[in-house]
Write a protein that binds this DNA or RNA. Sequence first.
DNA 1: AGGCTCATGACTC
DNA 2: GAGTCATGAGCCT
Length: 181
Amino acid sequence: MKNGWFQLPIATRDGQFIARYSENGLAELDFPSCDRRRRGNESQTLSLDESDGDSRRLLLVLAKIRAWHRVTESALQSILAGRMPKNFPPLDAAGTAFQQSVWQELRKIPLGQTKSYGEIAAKIGKPKAVRAVGSACGANPIPVLVPCHRVIAAHGKLGGFSGRLGWKCKLLSAEGVQFPD
DNA sequence: AGGCTCATGACTC
DNA sequence: GAGTCATGAGCCT
């Protein structure tokens, strides 16, 4: 794990997600891993690099992240249940300028609606960059909250998904989206 | 409906 | 530069 990042699990009925935070907000969200083996310890784990030795600042950061994590948990549970979250944590996804512009556009897609890769490309002013949009979706470090699953191929086909494609179906179904097959 | 080609922008090596 | 993409449009059968 990267230096100075904090990792916290989120238990859902679909398995345990992993959230990772930088000092600026939620940086990554992982789907539950395929292997189902459970470690005995379900408690929250924190890890960090304490090289700066400033414990007072550390406590402040921890408090901040705990607060963010509560918001993240609630937002994730809401979306999995097909409801629009009331609040989002601050997001700190690392990416190129192009990727950032794509991810920002994804966040504007309302729950329960979909857009095509081409529509996203047009929205960010690069109507021909359709494949690049697909790649940027695949590079999205915060799935679900940054709704890359709401981007589908033209003419209603499903397109791809970096996790298991089943997750894309599951998330869209939870949001009430109908798609062929 | 399915298969093939080509244009295409961003990214990686 | 060449190769890789979570695409899309066009054109065939």
